[in-house]
Nucleic acid binder design. Structure first.
Lengths: 244, 244
DNA sequence: CGTCATTTTGAGGTATTTCAACGAAGGTGG
DNA sequence: CCACCTTCGTTGAAATACCTCAAAATGACG
C-alpha cells in the first residue's frame, strides 16, 4: 500500500483525539470528544502515527510496557489468553479509545487489530511526564479510564445474562451507540468475526450463530454479509435488551 | 454508641489513603498504598469522615453526583438494579478504594455498606479543583481507576466461567489477595452475605450454596460461620482457580 | 475455479435455574 | 425466658439453555 499524497490529504485529523464522558454534567449533548487544540498538539508531538493491517498484534499480555496507544481509526480488540488456550475478549476498542495502560510495568491484555487501523503510540515516560505537567490533559485521561471502567461493568452485566440472544442484543445495542457519531445509516457495523463475538460474549461460536439465527427468525434483527446488522423490530429489540 | 476519647485514640490514620498499583514497574514489593503525607493532608482538609452502620446506602444510581468517596474501613458493595428487579453486584470495595466517580453528573451504581464502615466523602467541585492543581495527586487517582478497570476485567472473566465452584474459587482467590495486607491468619474473610456473593458471581443463591458445598465436600475449602473460609488443599484450589 | 477458513446446522450431554419446602439464626414482644 | 416472626441459607427434583462433538454449507481469495 504505497502512501500517496492524496491519501495523506484525506487525513483530516491533526492528531489523536480521546472520547469519553465527563464526571459532571455538561450542557445537553456534551460533546464526548475530549481534548482541545493545544492538548492535541502536545500529544501529537509525542505520538508516532502507525498503521496496522487487520489481525496485527499491537502488544502481548505480560510483555514489558513500552507504548501507550490512542486509537485513531479502525477497530481493535483486547483479550486475555487463558491457561486452557481459550480467549476472553475484554473489550472492543474504537477511535478515541486509549489502551496500553499497564500495571507494574507489564501489559495486562493482548491487543490485536480487528480491521486495518491507524493508531498513535506514545512512549510511556514522556506521556506520564506530560500528564504530570498538564493536569487538564490528565483529567481527560482520568475521565476516559473511568468511562472504560463503566464499559467494563456493562460487559460484566452482559456476561451475567443466561440467554445467548439477549447477550448478543446487548452487544449490538452497545455497538449501535458507538455508531451514532457517524452517519445515521441505521446499520450496525460488525467488523469483528463471529469468533470474536463469541469470545466477548462468553459463548461458544455455535451459540453465537444460533443467537443471530434466533434474532433473525424472530424478525428482530437482520444480518448482512456477517459484518452488518440492522434492527427491524425496535420495540422487540429494546425489550430483549432490557429484559434482564 | 457514645464516642469516647479512647475510641478516638484508636484512630491511627490521619486521613484517607488510596490503594492501587502503578503503571510502571516499581522496585520489588512496590508499596501499593499511594499518597504521601502532603497529599493525604490536602485530601483530609477537603474530606469529611463519616461512619455508617452495615447495610447503609451511600448513594443510589442515577441520582445527581454530590460526593466522591474514599473507603477508610469496612467493606462496601457497588451494584446496579436491573429492570427485572434483580441486582448485579459490580464490585466489592475495600479500604483504600475510591468510588462515586459519576458519569454526566449522575452516579452509575448504588453503593451500600456491607459491614460497618468509615468513609471519607469529598465534594466533587473542590476535589476536581484539587486534582487540577496537583497533578501528582491526580496521577494516583488515575492509577487507582486503571486498577479498578483491571478488577472489572477479572470480574468479567469470572462471570464467563461456566462452573459455579470455579467462579466461587476465583472470588475467594481475589478476596485472599486483599487479605494479604493484614495479618496472615490463613483465613479469608467473607463479610458479605450469600446473596451478595450470588449477585457478584452471576449465580442463583442456591447455586452459591451448592458451590460452597462442593468445595467443602471435595476437601478444598472449609467455611466457618458463613463469613470466613480457609483453603485446605492449596494445590487443588489453585488448579480450580486457573482451570478455565 | 479450487482450496482454506469461517459459519451454520444437528444431536446428545451437562450444568445451572427455577420452584418448592425445609432448617437455622436473629430480633421482638409478651 | 420463651414463643413468634422474619430473614437467610440449605436441600431436592424437574426444566431449560448452553456446550461439545461432528459434519455440511457458505464464503473469501488466489
Amino acid at each position: 500500500m504505497a502512501r500517496t499524497a492524496g491519501a495523506e490529504q484525506i487525513q483530516i485529523e491533526s492528531g489523536p483525539l480521546i472520547r469519553a464522558i465527563q464526571f459532571e454534567h455538561n450542557a445537553h449533548g456534551s460533546s464526548q470528544w475530549l481534548l482541545n487544540d493545544s492538548q492535541r498538539t502536545k500529544l501529537a508531538q509525542l505520538a508516532t502515527r502507525v498503521t496496522f493491517p487487520a489481525r496485527s498484534i499491537a502488544y502481548r499480555e505480560d510483555t514489558p510496557l513500552e507504548w501507550i496507544f490512542i486509537l485513531g481509526e479502525g477497530v481493535v480488540k483486547a483479550f486475555r489468553e487463558l491457561p486452557s488456550g481459550k480467549r476472553r475478549v475484554t473489550a472492543f476498542l474504537f477511535p478515541g479509545d486509549v489502551f496500553g495502560l499497564a500495571e507494574n510495568g507489564r501489559y495486562v491484555n493482548t491487543v490485536q487489530t480487528v480491521t486495518n487501523a491507524t493508531l498513535y503510540k506514545i512512549a510511556t515516560e514522556p506521556l506520564t511526564e506530560l500528564l504530570r505537567h498538564d493536569p487538564d490533559l490528565q483529567f481527560q485521561f482520568l475521565c476516559k479510564v473511568t468511562h472504560a471502567l463503566r464499559q467494563g461493568q456493562r460487559h460484566a452485566i452482559v456476561l451475567a445474562r443466561r440467554d445467548a440472544a439477549g447477550r448478543l442484543a446487548m452487544l449490538l445495542s452497545m455497538l449501535e451507540e458507538n455508531e451514532v457519531a457517524g452517519s445515521r445509516t441505521g446499520w450496525i457495523q460488525l467488523p469483528m468475526s463471529r469468533t470474536d463475538l463469541a469470545e466477548y460474549l462468553g459463548l461458544s461460536l455455535e451459540s453465537v450463530s444460533r443467537a443471530t439465527n434466533a434474532l433473525t427468525r424472530r424478525g428482530i434483527v437482520t444480518f448482512h454479509g456477517g459484518h452488518a446488522a440492522r434492527v427491524i423490530d425496535r420495540a422487540a429489540f429494546d425489550k430483549l435488551v432490557t429484559a434482564l
